[in-house]
């Protein structure tokens, strides 16, 4: 469905340096029992964020008021495992619009692009720089410019370019999803199908 257009995002970040964060951590399976796409942000990182009684765990970054912002910065191989799009719904619903890591799992990355969360892949060195800068100053901001395909650490001026294909970039800039494109070429698809 249509989502907010993405152009330039300037924001402080929430750092989650742990590697191999799978989608079961992002949203555990027991919270997938909805028939509508609402409220998933409440259970984002549920079992890291709350104890069994539902009390916030103070040592988890989402419960630390020092950190805030619309950009989640995560360790490598973020989003592995289950194909549940609910993981990205939870990230979006919580308020993030961009996830930065040095490596993303494939299906997770596709799911992000389909609902308007920008996955930005940076080098491991740049990722380390971000973590170091945020540790030194939690208010450190990143600027993500989709059109220029650049990500800048504003405190130091360090910048990198990131990859995204032209098609997906235009979609994100306009808030379009793939289904709009597919519906426009329905005739061509029907012809393909009939040739079986």
């Amino acid at each position: 469905m249509p989502y907010d257009k993405f152009n330039v995002l300037k924001s402080a970040v929430v750092p989650l340096s742990r590697e191999n964060v799978d989608t079961d951590q992002i949203i555990p399976a027991r919270f997938l029992k909805a028939t509508e796409r609402e409220g998933f942000g409440d259970n984002l990182f549920r079992d890291w964020r709350y104890d069994v009684e539902g009390n916030p765990k103070p040592d988890f970054v989402l419960n630390d008021t020092t950190y805030s912002g619309k950009i989640l910065v995560a360790g490598k191989n973020f989003g592995s495992g289950s194909s549940r799009e609910h993981a990205v719904w939870a990230i979006y619903d919580y308020g993030f619009r961009c996830v930065v890591s040095s490596f993303f799992a494939d299906i997770f990355k596709n799911n992000c692009l389909n609902i308007g969360v920008l996955p930005v892949t940076v080098s491991p060195e740049f990722l380390d720089k971000i973590f170091a800068a945020v540790e030194a100053d939690p208010k450190t901001e990143l600027e993500v410019d989709l059109d220029k395909q650049s990500i800048t650490l504003l405190s130091t001026g360090d910048a990198e370019s990131f990859e995204i294909n032209t098609y997906k970039k235009e979609n994100m800039k306009n808030g379009f999803d793939d289904i709009d494109y597919l519906l426009n070429i329905k005739g061509e698809i029907e012809e393909f199908e009939s040739k079986g």
């Binding site: 799009e85 299906i107 698809i189």
Partner: peptide, 20 residues
């Protein structure tokens, strides 16, 4: 292969998905 729910919607509507 596995897909997300947006893609489930695409397949239902058009029998296609957009894949690199």
């Amino acid at each position: 292969f596995g897909i997300g729910t947006s893609e489930v919607e695409m397949v239902l509507a058009t029998q296609c998905i957009m894949q690199s």
